[in-house]
Design a protein around this nucleic acid. Sequence first.
RNA 1: GGGUCGAUAGCUCAAUGGUAGAGCACUGGCCUUUUAAGCCAUUGGUUCCGGGUUCGAGUCCCGGUCGACCCA
Length: 484
Amino acid sequence: MPSHDLYAVRLAKLEGLRAAGADPFASNWEQTHTSAEAAILFDEATQAGPSVSVAGRILVFRLMGKASFVKIQDRAGIIQLYVTKDEIGEAAYEDFKKLDMGDIIGARGPLFKTKTGEVTVRAEAYGLVSKALRPLPEKWHGLSDDEQVYRQRYLDLIINPASRERFAQRSRIIQEIRNFLWERDFLEFETPVFQSVAGGAAARPFVTHMQALDQKFFLRISLELYLKRLLVGGFDRVFELSRVFRNEGLSRRHNPEFTMLELYQAYTDYRGMMSLVYDLIQHVCTTVLGTTQITRPDGQVIELGGKWREVTYRDLIVDFTKDPEWFQRSKEDKAAYCRLQELDIHPDWQDFEVTQELYSKRIEPFLFQPTFVTQLPRELCPLAKLNPEDPRVLDVFELCINGQEIAPAYSEQNDPLLQRDLFEKQVGEDKQNMDEDFLTALEHGMPPAGGMGIGIDRLCVLLTGAASIREVILFPSLKPTVNS
RNA sequence: GGGUCGAUAGCUCAAUGGUAGAGCACUGGCCUUUUAAGCCAUUGGUUCCGGGUUCGAGUCCCGGUCGACCCA
């Protein structure tokens, strides 16, 4: 066996252990304390600590003749063990020396402090809990190959503390969103992933086939139409925080499956959603981050506290173009201006699409500080109520932070006849793309309501200061390798 | 879908068209308070895949795979 075949070397060690009657994959190890819990038990006054039993993965393995230092990592951090031949006995120490970095071990013993001041477990006994047959990435530079980070995220999590912390933050953020909504009397529900009509948004859906019904189904692209059925059913405050699927591009900002929060609250409107989303983000900042200031990877600071800017879509366009008459201009004039801005304007586009291209490419990406963009053109959201004073625009906002749309919210359309009308305009001739069951539900009467969606992945990018959506999605969509 | 860049030892990275190297890891030896432990001696390669040019290709050309970034 060549010594450079790391797998074979470790496999041989494992077989040696089995031959000696040991179990390299023990059923358990009693863990009385985590690394963090143990470390604080050391008493500075007496320079002593109680006996603890810890377990974790070996990240540092320093053999110094008849004594060794190893560091193990558990869920709370890293703790050092001091293992000597005198303490554990000659035979056990011989076995101990055969351990590898990456092995999961347990150890028992009292706490002490080393010469250099590190609280350490003086091992009286140790046990191999789970043998690692493959080596860890290099300790100093870690794992930096993006592809391996995504395909073998567990290695990234073992080796990169920042990555570990980022995903822990994501879990806390989601938990605090649920806590916040629960405190406000919202109930969480689970609605169908398989839908015969993929409604609630404009996106290309994934298609699948349900064997039992011999029927084509789509994976949901939004949670909206089923949650609104629950409003009709009398649950006045509902939300769902779950995965939706859009069969579109992959990029730094898009993953085909992503996590969405949608919530609906009866007897309020988009103004109510404004204060709700503000309070929600303050709550998450306070409980999870302990600050309202986020530093982006480029060093720019985003302030999530204080009063947020509110501006109409119209004013943003006029401010950008310096043209108060913009909305009176012909489509051709608008397109000509956009082409000067080096935007690719399709000749088939409708008037509002030209303006929207300008907005989404030249304005929205630069809205870093929290901004409520209100009064969007009516063509953009067929599920929202029209503004009573100006029916060309909608009673909606888009909350933009970090140059991205974080949360769109509407005063929800509850007029079933108008809703049918708007749907028909949207789908054109393709009537089978209308969710008739939803329209029937509206005909039974839906209370006036405010609704909102929050892209959880983008929110996590914002709150953790990440550079890409792949930094907050554990296993982003990738092309399968030949083996898988 | 288009453009640009990248893929070399387990990991992080070198290598004018001319013998594929280093650090860490691994293997063996020394070492009972180390902190990227140290010292000594080794070992380790389908240079992503397939073609081509060339006396000679990790390097140049073509095609492909996978990834990153930008654009759509």
